[in-house]
Amino acid sequence: MKLKSINAVKKNDVLAKPIYNDEGQVLLNASVKLSESMISRLQDKGVSFVYLEDPDTDDIFVNDTLPPEKKAKAVKTINKSFKTIAYRISEGKNLDIDDLTVDFASVVEEILNTVTTEKDAITMLSNVMNYDSYVYQHSLSVTVYAIALGKKKGLNMKQLKELGLGAMLHDVGKMGIPIEVLNKKQKLTDEEFDTIKQHAELGFDMLRKSKTLPLLAAHCAYQHHERLDGSGYPRKIGEKDIHLYGQILAVADVFDAVTSHRVYRSAMLPHEGLELLQAGSGTLFNRELVDLFAKTVAIYPVGLEVVLSDGSAGVVKMNNPLIPDRPVIKVLRDAHGQRFDEPYELDLTERLNITIVKCEALIESKTYES
């Protein structure tokens, strides 16, 4: 199978993996031949990438970090709990969330059990991203990324649980933001952006009053938009005042935000998201954490079509867990675009003089330089 941008998919392309909705139900099954109306509907649903059948890559298989069933169960739990919080806010009711923490803790435990035993690089490409569920999907993905990064940093299990709860609830303050501002498709006004920024303090105020959540979980909500150089919000504090969890959350939050489809822009590929983090490494984001994150996530997802520095082209067949930016490539074409009668595998950890220079399965059918 190969990975394609939904905007590069053509009529009669055949799905290699099912497309799921937030309930874990299959929208379109594997082996379905796509029509123009199906492609349009997937675009409207916010799908950014799909896996397609391809005779040249029928030996390439993709394993999700979180299976669709587990992912759907987790998102439903987050969805239900966040909506309960939003209802209590709208009705002016007591906002005590201690009755919900068991549900959040169970999701974090499930992620811990999966991520801490995962040997492959983390892949969280979303099958479906409905506009009204972005916060819930985002909360789950950020939790996975944060726990994986925390593990790579060497945090113990108690710390990973604290970090996981903080990650899952880092955006809970958005339940207090007017929905018309939160989901606005057009560019936000300065006043609306100031309203959005209030979610960090709102979340902190909600969580710090909990009798069952660790106080550090509240600080995750408070600090995930702070930046090392003091340019973040809400307090514009610098590196020495930002807790390690807050610095981990900053990396995980930005990466998932830019690699997810939003109502106002399309998703970046993982390597583009990493480049954005690296551009701010040392000034906005903790340099060590960005470097560790680069070794944690699948920068080039399995199935992605790539062009190499020697001019040859192929598809990512597998990731190297210790060096995710040097995957194994199934090379299909030579530098002149001629197909090989017998494609071959190239492990980039063994050929350091060859690099990935372009990725072909891209948004709006563009080719982005690495």
Rank of each mutant, 00 (worst) to 15 (best):
I329K: 09
N29W: 09
D334V: 08
C220M: 10
P343Q: 10
K11M: 05
I356A: 06
I242D: 06
L292N: 02
K71F: 07
L269H: 08
H336T: 10
T212Q: 07
P343R: 14
I6L: 01
E162R: 00
T367I: 15
A313H: 03
V47R: 13
D229Y: 13
T116Y: 06
L244K: 09
R287Y: 02
G282E: 05
P301E: 11
L308S: 01
H219F: 12
L346Y: 08
A74S: 12
A361H: 10
H219Q: 10
V181I: 15
S5E: 03
T117F: 03
E360F: 11
G303T: 05
A218V: 04
Q137W: 14
G230V: 13
E360T: 10
I237Q: 02
T259R: 03
M124D: 08
A72Q: 05
G230P: 06
K330S: 07
K358M: 09
F49Y: 15
I363A: 09
M157A: 00
D205R: 08
Y264S: 08
R351Q: 13
K11D: 01
D229A: 06
S281P: 06
K152M: 03
M129G: 02
E226G: 02
L155K: 03
R333C: 04
E342Q: 08
K83Y: 03
T349R: 13
F285T: 02
G203R: 07
L3V: 01
A105R: 13
Q198V: 01
A252F: 11
L125R: 15
G246C: 05
E342Y: 09
K174C: 05
D325H: 15
S260Q: 14
Q43S: 13
S260C: 01
K197C: 03
K161M: 04
Y51H: 12
I299W: 02
V302N: 03
E53T: 09
K2H: 02
G173Y: 12
K209L: 04
D334Q: 13
V108L: 05
D341W: 11
D103H: 08
N113E: 14
S281T: 06
L202A: 03
G303D: 07
I97A: 04
V135E: 08
D96S: 07
E364N: 13
D334W: 12
V50Y: 10
E342G: 00
G92I: 13
N183R: 12
L308T: 01
T116C: 09
